[in-house]
């Protein structure tokens, strides 16, 4: 894998979320949220359960269609595109609850990730000669790079449904990486993982950024992880954006503290709460 420097996007943002409103029969899941992500960034979205983080991901990947607002990819609206068309633009993602193709092997799952990078048509695939053959071999080599990158060599021929949870999460990341995306959406990549697995995943995320130069949006509940690796953080609560900025800025924001810890903390003992939050982060990092 060649190292790609994060490219400087001069003529605008990679992804723009423009006052998007999404509601389900009166329940407003995402309310007038705006944000943007530039190439090379590691942007993180945090918020309590039900804040609308995954809904934002589903809007981005085209699974939900918001009622108001606009979502732009390199300046062009992707609201009318189907999920597979958005994938073809270069947006990969993982899911909160693993959505792997469980009857297929790790190899086949990753090769499915290569779908948009392959061309073989019906007849060519049925005959399996010439171009299809070379295409399969070339893409297999790419997939092997990812297997090597994620250190899952020994699982290569395993049906993913029979693999341990942490490994499945890693395979899912691999499947998204196989798409060679420009933007990677990570939906709680370390949920339910122990400290060692979390640290492995954090290492992979940083490697993806540095070696592959892929822009990422990270949704995560593990505050220690987010505050450590994110460039910018957006905080959501009940579908509303309540803060936006660097991890340090966000941690001091009274609205954020109110959302996470409740009303009384936010107004009076701000300093104390801050210390508490930092303490939590340290504790989490120490793995207690």
């Amino acid at each position: 894998m060649t190292a790609v420097a994060p490219q400087a996007e001069t003529e605008g943002h990679l992804v723009e979320f423009d006052s998007v409103k999404l509601s389900f029969k009166g329940v407003v899941a995402v309310n007038q949220v705006s944000f943007h992500v530039d190439s090379g960034e590691l942007f993180s979205i945090i918020g309590p359960n039900g804040a609308g983080k995954t809904s934002i991901f589903n809007c981005l990947s085209g699974l939900y269609k918001p009622q108001e607002g606009d979502i732009r990819w390199r300046g062009e609206s992707i609201l009318k595109l189907k999920p597979f068309q958005i994938a073809e633009l270069g947006m990969g993602r993982t899911f909160q609850n693993i959505e792997l193709f469980e009857h297929m092997t790790v190899l086949e799952n990753l090769m499915t990730g290569r779908h948009i990078r392959m061309k073989g048509g019906v007849l060519a695939n049925l005959v399996f000669a010439g171009k299809t053959k070379t295409e399969e071999i070339e893409n297999r080599a790419k997939v092997e790079d990812i297997i090597d990158f994620l250190e899952i060599e020994r699982w290569r021929k395993f049906p993913v449904g029979m693999m341990p949870y942490g490994m499945q999460k890693r395979v899912e990341l691999g499947r998204a990486l196989a798409m060679e995306p420009d933007l990677l959406l990570l939906d709680e990549p370390v949920a339910g993982m122990n400290l060692e697995e979390t640290e492995d995943m954090a290492r992979f995320i940083l490697d993806i950024r540095e070696e592959l130069g892929i822009t990422m949006i990270l949704v995560e509940h593990d505050m220690a992880l987010v505050m450590d690796i994110a460039d910018r953080v957006m905080v959501l609560d009940f579908g509303q954006k309540i803060a936006d900025g660097t991890p340090a800025e966000v941690q001091k924001n009274p609205d954020v503290i109110r959302a996470y810890l409740g009303e009384e903390f936010a107004s009076d003992d701000l300093k104390e709460v801050e210390r508490e939050l930092e303490g939590d982060a340290i504790e989490a990092a120490e793995g207690s």
Binding site: L63, T112, G120
Partner: peptide, 19 residues
């Protein structure tokens, strides 16, 4: 081949396949 994998993907997880 690619085609067979796309079928299996739709079989196992149609939404993930689309994404």
């Amino acid at each position: 081949s690619r085609l067979g994998r796309s079928f299996a993907a739709i079989r196992d997880r149609d939404i993930a396949a689309e994404v």
